[in-house]
């Protein structure tokens, strides 16, 4: 199965964004993605209600190395902490916590086994499940992956926890040796069938890479932590936009 490649429209949007980049605040990297990438019909009702009532909000971010933030100097620069900052800025007056439950090198089945302790026990309003990388790397069975995702979403919905799935990271180099396609398709279909929101991290990072907004390939060793810091921050802000988009 193939996905549509970036459209000419996306390229035009990128050009426009690059044009406006000069006018933006200095410290934030300009890393918008085309709005159509974030568009979805899936909603986050429980989160929406708590935000509306200005009740304290708890979000659990669960997943692998890129959730844990292995590549940045401290967890404060990992994407969950940056998401907390972005959401706090967007919804001032609402206490928002984003808990980081990332652990490296676990497949979806292993992460699902942690759900009762790491997700349900925290009684969050929203769970953000970053997954699929280990499955693609190890070429694990697509059908079992789909079943695991279904089970995870069912478990969350049974507890009335809103859910967002986050797909894989992108770089030319990794995409050249790993076949992500079947796993990207599976996540898209599972999200579709369960009315869950799928945050297209892979497509967003590919857009950045294709349009020269980030270069993931040739970065010198010394600059890698600062690149990761910027990328996680950008992804967190995109995710905050996506969450705002998904509130009814």
């Amino acid at each position: 199965m193939a996905r549509p490649s970036p459209s000419p429209l996306a390229g035009a949007v990128a050009l426009g964004l690059l044009f406006f980049a000069g006018a933006a605040t200095a410290e934030e990297t300009q890393c918008q993605a085309p709005p159509e990438l974030l568009a979805s019909e899936a909603k986050l009702p429980r989160l929406a209600q708590h935000l509306k009532e200005r009740k304290p909000v708890t979000i659990v971010a669960i997943g692998g190395s890129s959730t844990a933030g292995n590549a940045v100097p401290s967890p404060a620069q990992a994407y969950p902490a940056r998401l907390e900052a972005a959401l706090t800025k967007r919804y001032p007056g609402v206490p928002i916590r984003v808990l980081n439950k990332g652990a490296p090198h676990e497949d979806a089945q292993q992460v699902l086994a942690r759900f009762p302790r790491d997700v349900v026990a925290e009684n969050p309003d929203l769970a953000i499940w970053e997954t699929g990388t280990i499955e693609a790397v190890r070429r694990m069975d697509v059908e079992s992956f789909a079943t695991t995702l279904d089970e995870g979403l069912a478990l969350l919905y049974a507890q009335h926890i809103d859910a967002i799935l986050v797909n894989m990271q992108y770089s030319h180099k990794t995409a050249a040796v790993i076949d992500f396609d079947p796993y990207l398709d599976t996540m898209r279909r599972v999200a579709d069938l369960n009315d869950a929101y799928l945050f297209p991290r892979f497509e967003i990072m590919k857009f950045w890479s294709d349009n020269g907004i980030f270069d993931f390939e040739t970065v010198p060793k010394a600059d890698r932590p600062s690149l990761a810091t910027k990328v996680y921050d950008c992804l967190a802000r995109q995710l905050a936009d996506a969450i705002a988009e998904a509130l009814p």
């Binding site: 692998g64 190395s65 890129s66 292995n70 590549a71 490296p104 090198h105 990388t133 280990i134 790397v137 190890r138 894989m168 990271q169 770089s171 180099k173 990794t174 050249a176 040796v177 790993i178 993931f216 390939e217 970065v219 890698r224 690149l227 990761a228 990328v231």
Partner: peptide
Amino acid sequence: EVSYTVWTFNNPMYSDELRV
């Protein structure tokens, strides 16, 4: 192909991916 990619790329941002 894989060994060349893994040894030359080796970016910690992709530590899960590099398990390939």
